[in-house]
Amino acid sequence: MALIEINNLHVSVQGKEILKGISLSINAGEVHAIMGPNGTGKSTLSNIIAGRDGYQITQGSVTFDGQDLLAMEPDARARAGVFLAFQYPVEIPGVSTSAFLKTAINAKRRDQGKPEIDAMEFLKLVKAKNKALGIPDDMIKRPLNVGFSGGEKKRAEVLQMTLLEPRFAVLDETDSGLDIDALKVVSDGVNALRDPSRAFLVITHYQRLLNYIVPDHVHVMAGGRIVKSGGKELAHELEAEGYAKYSTAA
C-alpha cells in the first residue's frame, strides 16, 4: 500500500474549483516532484495535505498510512508524520525559535509516549543539525522567522523537518528565493533524510532544484489537474520546452 494516496481530489476556494480531480500515489522511499506554471493549484495541494482552513473539499480523499488524513486536525497530521515546508514561512514575533522547536519536538515525543527532550540533548541536537545546514547557532535564539532572510527561512524549514523526522514531507517551492549555494545546502539537507521509510513531494516551478533533489517521478500539473507523469527526464524536457503546451491543454 502506498504511504500517501490522493484519490480524485476536488478542492474549491470560495466556490471556485482549484483542484479538479488530483490522484497521486506515493510509496515510502520515493521522491515525487510536481511541476507546473504559477496559479495552477500546486500550493493548494500542499495546504490541503497539511490541513489549512479555508478550502472546500468537494470530492475525493487523501489517505496517509491507511488513515483518513482529511479528517485529522493539522497538529495530529504533523504528529502522525506529515510535514509541510512552507513556501512563505510566517514571522512570529515574541516566540523564540528554540521554544518553538522544543515544543514541537516534545509534542511528537509525548504522542509516542517518550519523555520530553532534555535541554542539553536538545541543544546538542540542534547544533549538530545547524552545522550541516549552515545555520548560525544564534538563529534559534531569535524570534521565529522574524527578520530571517529568504534563504534563512528556507534553511529553518529544513532544520525543522530534520528535527521532526517526518515520514512524508511536502516541500512547497523550497527553492524560491535561494541562491545556488543555499539551494545546494538545502538540497543536501533533504537528501540526508532520504530513506526507504520516508517519502517526499517536491513542488517547484523550476527544474533547477531537481538537479539536486533527484526525483523518482515527475508530474506536471496544469489547470488543477495532473496532465502528465513520467520519470526524472520529464523535468529536463519541461526546462527545455516550458509549460506553454500544458497550459493550453488544461
Binding site: 489549512r52 482552513d53 497538529d75 504533523a78 509541510l84 514561512p89 516566540v95 514541537a104
Partner: peptide, 21 residues
C-alpha cells in the same frame, strides 16, 4: 496554522502565541 502544522495542539499553540504577543 504554522505552529499546528508542526504538531503543536491548538491550545498549546495559542498559549505560545499569546505569550509571544
Amino acid at each position: 496554522f504554522y505552529l499546528m502544522a508542526r504538531g503543536i495542539d491548538r491550545d498549546a499553540a495559542r498559549a505560545l502565541l499569546v505569550a509571544g504577543f
